[in-house]
Design a protein around this nucleic acid. Structure first.
Lengths: 121, 121
DNA sequence: CTGTATCCGGAACGATACTG
DNA sequence: CAGTATCGTTCCGGATACAG
């Protein structure tokens, strides 16, 4: 997994109150980042533009607590930590894909309805 | 649709930070309530135990705004209002089912991981 | 019956600065 | 590099009371 993560992985993936959500604000995106293989803390920060270390740590800890990923710290200098999906974490990809497919098919219709609502009020 | 809604429709459907969520806290449950056909405000309040009228109104308005349901007010006394799913609203049932199936299969494993985490800390 | 009007507590999320 | 420590804000959801 030497491939670096695409910094623009989630541009075009609007958090505009999308009607489907997995975990907290960042959970689903973290799962996508880890789908190809283990990643380090800093690697995750790149496509998750703007996430602060505090919030990323919180999300990762919650996911570790729920058994969605594992955290492995190597005793090196500089320190290296790797996050990797568990089977349980991977099992969320299926419903995530169902949600993404819904968005691709129907989100524009929802947005049109929303725009019309605000236009006529 | 004269069948009354089961008051216990959602007991056993824990809001315990389940990792999958459609819309706000109540959206998915409202969709389930409307799946068989149109319902009135008070009918919805029954299985949605404890929801206050303010919050139910907010959820319904947001769903109406997003084109997920329609609101029809009949000019009668006492007033009668019916909420009914649109096709767009119905289209959410598919990803919802994917989420429910995930929960049935894996939620217990998540809860076990969570319990173990707290037990060992 | 179908809502509105106020007020409020807590959690989620973020900004900024600092550390082993 | 991989975080922690503080602090502040915003937002969701609820309690309670009242209205057409």
């Amino acid at each position: 997994m030497a491939e670096p993560l695409d910094p623009d992985l989630f541009t075009g993936c609007p958090p505009v109150a999308a009607p489907i959500r997995i975990g907290d604000k960042w959970t689903a995106k973290i799962i996508r980042c880890l789908e190809p293989g283990p990643r380090r803390f800093t690697e995750l920060q790149t496509p998750l533009r703007g996430i602060t270390p505090k919030v990323l740590t919180e999300s990762l800890r919650a996911m570790e607590r729920d058994g969605l990923l594992t955290r492995t710290a190597y005793d090196e200098i500089p320190p290296r930590v790797e996050y990797e999906l568990t089977e349980l974490g991977r099992s969320l990809i299926e419903p995530m894909n169902a949600g993404c497919e819904w968005s691709r098919k129907h989100l524009s219709e929802l947005m049109r309805a929303r725009d019309a609502w605000y236009a006529s009020s």
